[in-house]
């Protein structure tokens, strides 16, 4: 798909997000299990003070995306399943700006919201069908479909592929 089409699609999706946002704000329930991801910053939907927090079930309830790919950090083809960053951003009413992602070990990286597209990165919670422990880069790993899109096989994208992800902070432009 050419970039132009991609932009148009993104635009449409974002427009839909604006429309859905007020309704979604009221329907994000509080987490019932252990919180594994908290989102702060310029988000329009929250369920915990300034944050939107998610347990595994909430993430899993947002729609699964699965793809197989190789990565520089693993051996052989891996199958990853998770929630699309695009879906998450939409859910939280995030349309622009950048997302600062932080890991358990305080590794942090800025991800532009424009990366959050359909067919783009996912917050993977399953690797080869199994939940990932911290020792295996879990519980959440932002994975891009490297093999499906050559543009994702770059050093910048590799640096954005943050594992042991625990926090997102949305910063508006």
């Amino acid at each position: 798909m050419c970039a132009f089409m991609k932009n148009i699609l993104t635009g449409l999706v974002l427009a839909a997000g604006f429309v859905a946002a007020p309704l979604a704000a009221e329907t994000l329930p509080p987490p019932t299990g252990e919180v594994i991801l908290s989102v702060t910053g310029d988000i329009s939907v929250r369920n915990d003070g300034d944050s939107a927090v998610f347990d595994m079930d909430m993430l899993r309830g947002m729609g699964e995306v699965t793809f197989a790919t190789t990565t520089p950090w693993t051996e052989g083809v891996q199958e990853f399943t998770g929630v699309s960053l695009h879906t998450l951003a939409e859910r939280l009413g995030v349309a622009s700006g950048s997302i600062k992602a932080t890991a358990i070990n305080d590794y942090a990286i800025d991800i532009p919201v424009t990366d959050a597209v359909e067919g783009g990165p996912i917050l993977a919670y399953l690797q080869n069908g199994k939940p990932m422990s911290v020792r295996y880069n879990g519980p959440l790993w932002l994975v891009y479909p490297y093999d499906l899109n050559e543009a994702y096989r770059s050093e910048v994208i590799y640096s954005r592929s943050i594992w042991q992800l625990v926090r997102l902070d949305v910063v508006a432009d």
Partner: peptide, 16 residues
């Protein structure tokens, strides 16, 4: 510990 574990595992397995 888990973080260190994942780090060592990464060094052992990563293509890099």
């Amino acid at each position: 510990y888990d973080v260190l574990y994942s780090r060592v595992r990464l060094i052992q397995q990563s293509q890099q």
